[in-house]
């Protein structure tokens, strides 16, 4: 009579916790996800096909919209590829290379603030969202000062960057860099003692280094699993080897 059965839940494609559109069919045993069948492609806009019909310069704005949280970083990846293909890598001015790094790292912080705040929002810690977005706005102000656009600048182009920066940018960027470490402490205070957040992240979704390699997972997930690997160190581009930074690594590769 009372045979134990798992529950099938349809999650998405429009769901407040997906941020973008993803549909997952979940099999649940109580609170634990036993199986998940993802359905993607709800945002398949045909970028590749569209880019085939454009010139190298015309295809640049499309790269902004591939990962809209880190538009400049996508611009850079595309530009580097075009430059490599045309064999003009050595002809890029040094100032442009430094600017690229500056802008991309700012964008990277903004992108990290976005995932970090919305992930906390989704698992029950709303306040962080407002704090992180306040600071993300500061970064977007700075980026706007340099590029003229908030989200999709198309600023880094094959051959260099679109324009030079001005004094206001330098002033704002300096101020932000100075204030940011204190802000990070603020976020930590908000989350590190939040019991709900801890319970929902610690020892959840663990992935070993071997699994990461099998599934071709890189970036923060791979580093969390304990492998000290960063493309900026392993195969430096944009003179990243002349910058001094450390690669943070974890040990067990869970969400926390």
């Amino acid at each position: 009579m009372s045979e134990k059965r798992n529950m099938i839940v349809n999650f998405g494609p429009s769901h407040p916790a997906t941020h973008g559109v993803l549909r997952v069919i979940l099999e649940l045993d109580g609170e634990t996800v036993v199986d998940a069948i993802p359905h993607m492609g709800h945002l398949h806009r045909g970028l590749e096909k569209l880019a085939e019909h454009k010139t190298y310069h015309q295809a640049l704005p499309l790269t902004d919209r591939m990962d809209y949280t880190g538009a400049l970083i996508n611009n850079l990846g595309y530009s580097l590829a075009v430059e490599k293909l045309l064999d003009i890598e050595d002809a890029i001015p040094e100032r442009a290379t430094v600017l690229r790094v500056l802008l991309c790292e700012l964008q990277r912080i903004a992108a990290h603030l976005l995932w970090f705040s919305t992930h906390a929002l989704d698992i029950g810690a709303m306040t962080v969202f407002f704090y992180a977005f306040r600071d993300r706005e500061t970064i977007h102000d700075i980026l706007e000062q340099a590029t003229g656009a908030r989200l999709t600048p198309s600023f880094i182009r094959p051959g260099g960057v679109a324009a030079d920066i001005n004094d206001k940018f330098i002033e704002k960027a300096r101020a932000f860099v100075k204030s940011f470490p204190a802000l990070m402490d603020e976020y930590e205070l908000l989350l590190n003692k939040n019991k709900i957040w801890l319970k929902r992240t610690q020892n959840i979704g663990m992935m070993s280094a071997e699994e990461c390699k099998q599934y071709a997972v890189t970036g923060p997930v791979l580093r969390a699993a304990g492998i000290k690997w960063d493309l900026r160190k392993a195969q430096p581009y944009c003179d990243y080897d002349s910058y001094d930074f450390e690669i943070p690594t974890g040990t067990i590769g869970d969400v926390w």
């Binding site: 973008g20 945002l43 809209y68 306040r134 908030r150």
Partner: peptide, 19 residues
């Protein structure tokens, strides 16, 4: 209704944030 589909959803979220 929260109905973010792509890039613009980010700006919609920004509109609801403190700034």
């Amino acid at each position: 209704m929260t109905f973010g589909l792509a890039c613009c959803a980010l700006e919609m979220m920004v509109a609801s944030s403190s700034d």
